[in-house]
Design a protein around this nucleic acid. Structure first.
Lengths: 189, 189, 189, 189
DNA sequence: ATATAATCGAGACGGTACGTCCCGTCTTGCA
DNA sequence: TGCAAGACGGGACGTACCGTCTCGATTATAT
């Protein structure tokens, strides 16, 4: 009834190869075929776990220490947001950024995958911000009634820049964005 | 050296077919092969005009009344932004939104195309907002020193939502965003 | 050393499923995978008994009443051959024919299997004819010196027709073939 | 309206590679994938001309000087048949035999292909024999009423032996078969 | 009764080939 | 030179079977 269990060795091989390929050849160089060839894992075996390269990349991102999202509580929304954004932006450098862009591409093409991405990655990040805002609201720092909107304000510009690869996600930008969001939060609707 | 001139009939056929395909099958159904088959135009002929499907989609968007971007000047930044965003969001419904998502996917995977997209579409939109802010600054409504950041604030959330197809781009959202941006603009750095 | 004995229930399940699949989907529908799925028997379990689908098909044919080969002795080679061929042809209708064609395909592609097929199926059939000829020779009906050749004459045309599915193997053909073989047998080299 | 014509260079490359592969690795070593890899021709390009490896092999056989079937007219059916069979058997040695076996395998699996094979290869060979018998009938050498049956008698044993790879197709066998067929032809039904 | 040992179902696994899709380039003949 | 038609090499897709493997659960005999 049980059958042979899936090998964790294989799991890891897939993840490692995907990372290596993304690093070497960028998101475009990551295909099922390439992962299979690079990892020595049969295509079928990959498809048994993931339905698309996007899902593989999700797994890769998830393997990054479970997204070591900081959740600072400094007593200031501005400061909390800055610390989160600063760390988040830093994580977007290198492969992680490459993978994030890949995920965006996948999401835009596939409704079902978009939902999965949202649930497994985006919503976690949003939850952290939502919590920050909640704490700030208790402290009386927040007058704006719509938390979801504020969260959009925090992450929207990041994806915008990630999308067009136009401008950097640096520390200064993190500070500006934290500042702006805190300002909007403080202002009454 | 001169030879036969390019047929405008062909130009139009390509645009029309691309629109039709995007509408029927989503932007995934838009491939060079599909456009050629649907329009009766030879692939070569399409390649003679455009380097990628992304460029075709750009052309289609451009053909929409030359991006009927409103550039209101109501004397209030909040109001100007609202009118612009409201119109922009409305335009994202239907094919136009589909095409925009296609462009995002293309850009995210192709640095060179991302630049092209920026120059031909994004920067125009940004210029409009920049002008609004400039006028508002003259009126004394703007204290924030960084125009580019403010523009990011205007468009970032839109692409964020477009990207994940999660939430709608409705009138309420336009108002919230205009409001928030005006608030940030008014606040000193 | 002894362990659990092989289950005859499983044996039968394999045979039944193979027959069912051959009947429904033709012999192309008979694969190890399909037999396993249809019968609920594990692939490994099938491989424990048979080395190839060909062998399974052989087993199925063997299970048909141990090849109810008639071995008539009417005192006339012509009549003996006719009765044998008539029965043999009749057996080629339905699944049995399908399986025979499958065996042919397998044999043609696999030297080793061809030998096995020969030993377990073909040589038996030939032996029967060889015996008929022997008896006829005693009676003085046979002048032709080469028994093997005569046997080829009996079975060659059958496989030829089976192979190309072109013409039927009916009673008239059995009579013609018996007649012809008897004639050749009677004639001196 | 015309499009680029199919390249005869490609045609030849496919044929040559198929022959080479059949020679080196036998019929089993001939796959679409292998032909494509060996010839440097894209799979799609092969599929554009042929629907299966079987059809490729038919083309290969056809390329062998259009089956240089001898059609001797010696004034004796026995002699005519012997000369034809002798040449035919000789042609079955080497690749040609390998390909013939491959064709048989394909035919047995695919009704449609079986018809194609019959029309393009088998029926030609039969026609030659039919003509011989016709001439012999005029000369009064033939009493047997069924030409088709006689033709089966000529080719059946050859395929039988080809099928099981059991016995050789040598000159002696050609003589025996010619002899036997002539005998049957001469005998009245 | 309790090892010992093979069987069995389930299903993972590396592999090979399948047939299809689209890419971007090319070669025709006609306009 | 433009253009429709369509061939071409290339690369990836997702699927089907192959034959082997590892599980846990049985089911016998041999202690």
């Amino acid at each position: 009834m049980t059958g042979r269990p899936r090998s964790p060795v294989v799991d890891e091989a897939i993840i490692r190869s995907t990372m290596a390929l993304a690093q070497q050849f960028g998101y475009r160089g990551v295909s099922m075929e390439a992962i299979a060839a690079h990892s020595g894992v049969a295509k079928q075996t990959i498809y048994r776990r993931y339905q698309s390269i996007g899902e593989v990349m999700l797994a890769v991102l998830a393997s990054f220490a479970e997204e070591q999202l900081p959740n600072p509580d400094t007593g200031s929304l501005r400061e909390d947001l800055y610390l989160l954004l600063s760390a988040t932006f830093a994580a977007q450098q290198g492969i992680s950024g490459e993978l994030n862009r890949g995920l965006a591409a996948e999401a835009v093409q596939d409704e079902a995958f978009a939902r999965k991405l949202w649930e497994r990655l985006i919503s976690n990040r949003r939850e952290v911000v939502r919590a920050m805002i909640g704490r700030a609201r208790v402290r009386g720092e927040v007058a704006h009634p719509d938390d979801e909107f504020l969260v959009d304000l925090v992450f929207g510009p990041m994806w915008y820049r990630l999308l067009f690869g136009r401008a950097v996600l640096d520390d200064k930008y993190a500070r500006q964005l934290a500042e702006a969001t805190a300002t909007v939060a403080a202002a009454p609707a």
